[in-house]
Simulated assay, not measured.
Amino acid sequence: MATQAPRRSLRGLSVAVALIAAGAVGCSGVSDAVDGAKDGAKKVARQRSVFSLDIGDCYNPNGKAEGTAFTVEIVPCDEAHVGQVVGEFSIDKGKEYPGDDGVSTIADNQCPVEAQKYSPDTWALPKGVSLFYYTPTKESWETGDRAVSCTYTSEKGKFSGTLDTSKSLKPEQATFLKGSNAVYEALWANQSEKDTVEADLAGYKKQAKAVAAALATHVDGLKGIEGAEVAKLRTTLEKAAADWKKAAGAADADAFYIAYDPAFDGIDPNKSVASRKELGLATTVPADEAEVWAG
């Protein structure tokens, strides 16, 4: 299986190396070597094939090789670790190998969906944690491998604790997050590959239509949630939905831009901070989202 990102090395002394070293050092060195041997034995005992990862597994990757992995070290989630498996799915067995880029595209599209089932509030993720995935290689595909394991992985350092928050959410929190996540998924999943509206008016209008529909559903969900701040957000999003709908029906690029500017501003994540606080959810806008709306 291949991983989307370069592997991170987490080396440990093997039992054999540690014991050989013990014969050539003093008392304190022997103690250190024995401790190293114990750590090495624990690491060996925790090894698991990447083909048998399960949702919820917390792990540390092995080795220095970029691009491919065969085993990882499974650790208790209360120990510091690099990643946690937060979703999985299988690629259609009837397909021919889609190629490395094709497999990555499939994972790019589906892993966010699977991860949100496990960790619905992306604002609550530890700092520096991003979505990665293990996918079949051409060679493993030929043996029947179709599994994709979606993980949240620390790009620098480690984190502790499980990212499984779905079971602890109150009904109103779950409803809010489901609607909110769907809005931004509609925005980014339907993003045109063209840089300008003039180059792809139809594509941008398709995106606007998808966002307007997701907003309408989100607003309906908010109607069942009590709270002054939630009510204010609902009013804001109702206007944003109307603006996105106007953009979706724009006759030309100029009309699209006129509707798009207030529509995009209307779903600025910062506008939901007060309602999130009211609902007891995370209130710090993720850096990547903050950057988009700050520009």
Rank of each mutant, 00 (worst) to 15 (best):
A45V: 06
S166E: 05
N62I: 09
P262Q: 02
V44A: 15
C27K: 11
D39R: 13
T151R: 13
G56T: 02
G83K: 06
I91M: 02
D288C: 08
V219H: 08
A212S: 10
A287R: 15
L177Q: 04
K167F: 05
E79I: 09
C58S: 05
S275H: 07
H218A: 09
E238D: 14
A147G: 06
S166C: 01
K93Y: 04
A259Y: 04
L279C: 02
F51V: 03
E142D: 08
T151W: 08
Q4G: 14
T235F: 02
D39M: 11
Y152W: 05
A16E: 11
R48V: 10
A107Y: 01
Y133D: 04
L19P: 01
I225A: 06
D78F: 09
S9P: 06
K158G: 03
L279M: 13
K156N: 00
N60H: 10
F51W: 14
Q173I: 07
A290S: 14
A210W: 02
Q47L: 15
D288Y: 10
R234V: 08
T162Q: 03
T165Y: 11
A240H: 04
V72L: 15
Q47C: 07
F89G: 00
V103T: 06
G36H: 11
N60S: 08
A240G: 02
E185S: 07
Q173N: 11
V15M: 09
S168P: 04
V292T: 11
A263L: 00
T165K: 02
K194Q: 12
I258D: 14
T68D: 10
A186M: 10
A241I: 11
E278W: 00
L187M: 15
P112Y: 15
A247K: 05
F51L: 15
Q191V: 08
T122R: 10
T236F: 13
